[in-house]
Simulated scan of single mutants.
Amino acid sequence: MKKFIEEFKAFALRGNVMDMAVGVLIGSAFTGIVTALTTNCIQPILDVITGAKAYTIQEVAGFANAFVTAVINFFITALVLFVLLKAINKLMSINLIKKKEEEAETPTVKVCPFCKSEIDIEATRCPHCTSHLEEVME
């Protein structure tokens, strides 16, 4: 179950999945702006031009208020998504840094069994005492 959760986390936090989710949310918020524009700005203008309806000042103010509210909702949604993605990216970078540190912890030196000095892990002969190390390791 742990492996499944880790795989799902890796899938969900990949860049293209997050980008798609942000696109859907921003798109739905922008749909609110377009709807408010058509129902509260364009439709009343067409109604007045065609003579279908006359509006009072209060109704016109209500239309303007509804459109401004939709624009504000869009910007609030965009701000929340921006902050959320910034936090997710920060957490991902911290996680990547930890993984790099763990990988760097692999040993690069070993101790010579004869003179106890540190030598390269791939050395077959100690540079200090010139002992053959392959015989000891096998």
Rank of each mutant, 00 (worst) to 15 (best):
I76V: 15
I119S: 01
S117N: 15
N65M: 09
K86C: 02
H128Q: 10
S131D: 06
M20Y: 13
K3L: 14
E7C: 00
M18E: 02
A87M: 10
M18C: 01
F11Q: 03
E101N: 08
M92Y: 10
G32L: 00
I26C: 05
N65Y: 11
T39V: 07
T77K: 04
T56K: 03
N40M: 04
A123M: 01
T130W: 11
K2I: 14
K53Y: 09
F8T: 13
T38K: 01
L91V: 07
A78V: 05
T35Q: 01
V136D: 12
K110E: 02
N95H: 12
F74Q: 06
A64I: 15
L46I: 12
E7P: 08
F30Y: 11
T31H: 03
K99E: 15
I42V: 15
S117W: 11
G27W: 01
T124R: 09
F67V: 04
P127R: 03
K99V: 13
L96D: 14
M18V: 07
F67C: 01
S117E: 14
D120N: 13
L46A: 13
V24S: 02
K3C: 03
N65P: 09
H132V: 10
T56H: 09
L96H: 10
E138F: 10
A61M: 11
F75R: 02
I121M: 05
I57H: 05
F4P: 06
A29G: 10
T108A: 08
I5Y: 07
G23L: 09
V24Q: 03
D120H: 09
R125A: 05
M92P: 07
K110D: 08
L85W: 04
Y55F: 14
F75D: 05
T39G: 00
V136S: 08
K116M: 06
E134D: 14
F8W: 06
V60P: 03
S131G: 00
A54S: 12
R125S: 11
T69M: 07
F74D: 04
L13S: 08
V17A: 06
F74M: 01
I49A: 00
A10C: 03
C112R: 02
V136Q: 11
S117T: 11
F114S: 03
E101Q: 14
V71C: 05
Q43P: 01
M20L: 14
M92I: 14
S131M: 06
K9Q: 10
K99T: 11
E138A: 12
V109H: 12
A12T: 02
E6D: 13
R14A: 13
V22D: 11
S131R: 02
E138I: 02
